[in-house]
Amino acid sequence: MSETTTGFDTGGIDTILARYDGFEGHLIGILHEVQKLYNYLPREALERVSEQTGFTLERLYSIATFYNFFSLEPRGKHVIRVCTGTACHVKGAPRVLQEIEERLEISSDETTPDGQFSIEHVHCVGTCSLAPVVVVDQDTHSHVKPSKVRALLKNYEDKG
């Protein structure tokens, strides 16, 4: 197990990098795997990737901030993605989003203090006939109404 001076465990990253034969052209794939490991991209992790691959930290930061998928902030165990695309907006997505925000007492792009939930709003998940849509982790919830939000969240709270 290898550690940086700040005590950050980089063993997982080294294992990921060891699977790659050359890094050019694989950077996004590598960052995907690193994010899966930590649930976000910690600065220390990017520093380790930079050190091991020879890509500058600036290059990694540019990529990590360009793609919506990557997050530089810790995210909750469950990520709630509220669709705010046109169809969902018309069918009441703003009220659903507001209800979720009020229930969890956080705003969009934030994480609850207990690390359970993060809220993100996305622009169209491609299932407009199910509007308004809320995607939690891998589950798609259709025709969500503000009155259904409490039960929906409860479902995930119970899962722990």
Binding site: R43, L46, L57, E58, L60, Y61, T65, F66, L72
Partner: peptide, 22 residues
């Protein structure tokens, strides 16, 4: 590569990594 373009769309800006010293 001391500076780069961070974020995208309306948030795009010239920056160093983590807006820290490079």
């Amino acid at each position: 590569e001391a500076i780069t373009c961070a974020q995208r769309s309306t948030g795009r800006s010239v920056a160093t990594a983590f807006h820290d010293r490079s």
